[in-house]
């Protein structure tokens, strides 16, 4: 399983889960899938306002974006501690 294959598997998984979590309509699902494939997952969340989906779906996507960002902040805070210890340098 090459890295590219793992990426494809992850992409499929992310797309499937995301559509389920957001409860997207079929047309919106196509828009979202197409954009993520084009600009990547991070790029997708950077441009939510421009998406051609319903306002309700846009709000759900913004909610998911906020949860992701909060989780990332939390990880960054936690790893700040680790870099002072031995964990971060263990493989170097």
């Amino acid at each position: 399983m090459r890295t590219e294959l793992i990426e494809k598997t992850e992409l499929d998984r992310v797309l499937e889960l995301m559509c389920q979590i957001l409860g997207l309509q079929e047309a919106s699902e196509k828009v979202v899938v197409e954009i993520i494939k084009k600009v990547g997952i991070k790029g997708f969340f950077n441009n939510v306002n421009d998406l051609e989906v319903t306002d309700l779906e846009k709000k759900s996507i913004m909610a998911l974006k906020l949860v992701i960002e909060t989780k990332e902040e939390e990880i960054a805070n936690r790893e700040g501690v680790d870099t002072d210890g031995n964990k971060a340098s263990l493989y170097r």
């Binding site: 889960l17 990547g40 991070k42 680790d82 964990k87 971060a88 493989y91």
Partner: peptide
Amino acid sequence: SYNVLKMTQENERIKFTSPQ
């Protein structure tokens, strides 16, 4: 899954620096 996909898309090759 999002974390790994982001990591994979940001870096062509995933690099490990820690057990995390």
